[in-house]
C-alpha cells in the first residue's frame, strides 16, 4: 500500500513540475512570438497541456478524495470557457486589423 502511495506521490510531483515547465514555456512563447494571433497559441499551450499536467499532478498528490472531484470540476469549467474566450479575442483581432495579409497568408480550401 505504501509503495503505491510513494509511486503516486512521485508521479504527481513529476507531473506538477512538468506542468510548471509548460507554463514557463508558454510565458516564454508569449515573448518570443511577435504577433497577437501567434502569441495566443503560446497561451493556449498553458491552457491545455499546462493545466492538464498541474491538475493531474495535484490529483495524484492528494489521492482519491473530494478535492480530486473538485479538480475535475476545474477541468470542466476551464475547458468549456477557454475556447470561447480565445475565439472571441481572435475574431476581434481579425476583424479590426487592416493589413492582415502582411502577418499571415489567407488561404481558401
Amino acid at each position: 500500500m505504501s509503495v503505491i502511495h510513494e509511486i503516486a506521490t512521485g508521479a504527481g510531483l513529476a507531473l506538477f513540475l512538468f506542468g510548471l515547465f509548460v507554463f514557463f514555456s508558454a510565458v516564454l512563447g508569449l515573448f518570443r512570438f511577435d504577433y497577437v494571433l501567434n502569441r495566443m497559441h503560446a497561451a493556449a499551450v498553458g491552457d491545455s497541456l499546462g493545466i492538464f499536467c498541474v491538475l493531474i499532478g495535484l490529483m495524484l498528490l492528494h489521492g482519491w478524495s473530494l478535492s480530486a472531484g473538485k479538480t475535475v470540476l476545474i477541468f470542466v469549467f476551464l475547458w468549456l470557457t477557454s475556447p470561447v474566450a480565445s475565439h472571441l479575442i481572435a475574431g476581434m483581432e481579425v476583424d479590426t486589423v487592416p493589413d492582415l495579409e502582411k502577418e499571415c497568408e489567407v488561404e481558401e480550401r
Binding site: S25, A26, L28, S48, L49, L100, E107
Partner: peptide, 30 residues
C-alpha cells in the same frame, strides 16, 4: 485530450526551436 496533449508538445517545441521562422496561416474551409 490526447490530441490536446500532442498539439501542446508540438507548439512547445516550436517555442524553443524556431519562433521567428513560423508560417502562420488563416484557412477558410467547409
Amino acid at each position: 485530450v490526447a490530441e490536446m496533449l500532442k498539439a501542446g508538445m508540438t507548439v512547445m517545441r516550436l517555442v524553443y526551436t524556431k519562433p521567428k521562422h513560423i508560417e502562420p496561416r488563416l484557412i477558410w474551409f467547409r
